[in-house]
Amino acid sequence: MVTIDAFLNKITLLTSGNTIAKESDEYGNIIVTDSTKYRVLRFDGINEQSKMLKSDTCLPIHNYIKAMLMATAFTSSNTALVLGLGGGSLVRSLYALDSQLTLDVVELRSRVLSIAREYFSLPSSDKITYYINDAGDYLNNLSLPRYDLIFSDLYSAFTMDPLQGTERFLRLCLNKMHDHGWLVMNYHEVPKVGSSLYDALHRVFDEVLYCIVPSGNVVIYAAKKPHDSSLDEKKSQANQLLLQLGSNVDYLSRKINFLRCL
């Protein structure tokens, strides 16, 4: 009889090449696979947590990463916080866009950080600080600075961290943002009208946008204060940003819409 683990390992090999590293911690497995073009990070299961093009390590591959990066076009930014490292796709692209950006990165699992450094060309700079911490505990630190951008991508192997969908989390982020700042979240669905997250987003933030990416992920953009630019201007700015990164995918910027308050 074929075990579930053997089946998953076989699927992983068929879809992503050879396993070059596998470690475990109290949260589960951390698996790195390598093919001719790509290097992929997985936790348990076959879902890709991070993907890197080996010939251009700063180019974002997953559409949800591209959609998250579009937020950098919405406001001027000198400081950013990334909650959830994975293989460092977002961090590599942010650093490529602006090597002078002061960047704080929070990752729960120390082994994930070690593997990202060893296998995924994680940038090292005096402008970037990596923290091993729980995202909620980090945000509760009263001595933290304020940020222009906060990116939240909190996922385990199969599911989103429930913290990311709570009003408590939104308010913790709000308290760490400059007035012109944006919170950017990788979410699993468009918040339904009348849901707790839908209502909380509109209680906490003055402007809320979203973008549905082809994989089904939904990126939510929440502004602390209203911004002067129109939705069409934001779409144009976002598309120019993607072109700057070498990603000619204007269909993503066209999918930005208001999450309207009813």
Score class of each variant (00 low, 15 high):
residue 208 V to S: 08
residue 62 H to N: 05
residue 227 H to E: 09
residue 1 M to N: 14
residue 113 L to K: 08
residue 228 D to W: 13
residue 42 R to S: 13
residue 161 D to I: 02
residue 169 F to N: 02
residue 63 N to W: 00
residue 38 Y to V: 01
residue 172 L to G: 07
residue 99 S to M: 08
residue 70 M to S: 07
residue 135 A to S: 08
residue 224 K to A: 10
residue 239 N to I: 03
residue 12 T to G: 03
residue 3 T to M: 12
residue 240 Q to D: 09
residue 191 P to C: 04
residue 238 A to V: 07
residue 82 V to K: 00
residue 220 I to H: 04
residue 228 D to K: 15
residue 21 A to F: 13
residue 109 R to N: 01
residue 230 S to A: 11
residue 47 N to G: 01
residue 151 F to I: 01
residue 254 R to D: 12
residue 178 H to W: 05
residue 109 R to T: 03
residue 153 D to T: 12
residue 259 L to S: 03
residue 82 V to E: 00
residue 82 V to H: 07
residue 245 L to R: 03
residue 138 Y to I: 03
residue 7 F to W: 14
residue 99 S to Q: 11
residue 37 K to W: 13
residue 108 L to I: 10
residue 10 K to E: 10
residue 117 R to L: 03
residue 72 T to S: 14
residue 77 S to M: 10
residue 88 G to M: 04
residue 221 Y to A: 01
residue 13 L to C: 04
residue 212 I to Y: 02
residue 248 N to M: 04
residue 89 S to K: 02
residue 25 D to Q: 09
residue 112 V to H: 02
residue 133 N to M: 05
residue 28 G to R: 01
residue 72 T to Q: 06
residue 6 A to V: 12
residue 99 S to N: 14
residue 209 L to R: 06
residue 3 T to G: 15
residue 162 P to R: 06
residue 249 V to D: 15
residue 205 F to L: 03
residue 81 L to N: 00
residue 57 T to I: 14
residue 145 P to K: 15
residue 226 P to E: 05
